[in-house]
Amino acid sequence: MKKQSRYLVIIGCGQLGSHLANKLSLAGDSVVVIDRNERSFENLSSDFSGFRIEGDATRVGTLKEARMEKADVVVAVSGSDNVNIMVAQVARSVFGIKHTVARVYEQNHQELCEKMGIRTICTTRIAAEHFLLEITGQSEQGRTSL
């Protein structure tokens, strides 16, 4: 039986956003990518069969255009922590999306988001863990694997 297609909104079409968009689109999900810079869409491969919206994701109008209210998952991976934190909250509080995840660089921002119940992935923290493991053979928490 074919897996039911999900509707995903991805904010930011940089390295991470385009990678996720390509993979998820290829896997059969229905994907919309938002980026304020049209040239970022050049990162999308021929695997990508979704939609692209050029616009500012901090404007509710842009998110409406992406029909965010229908999204199963909202992924905020633009290059700005603040944009990602704002969009994840707007997705949840204005559009009622339960499943949202934001990428942040700063660990302080991750703490803030945890307090507010926003799910985040801190790429700096993850990279640091990997580097430490590589350098010392031990991760920050003393674990030997990630």
């Binding site: 901090t58 603040n82 934190i85 704002m86 969009v87 921002h109 703490e111 803030l112 307090k115 507010m116």
Partner: peptide, 16 residues
Amino acid sequence: PHDQDNLVICQLAVNR
């Protein structure tokens, strides 16, 4: 001039 910055600044001020 950036709404996302203003939001996060205020949320940090209040929450943290």
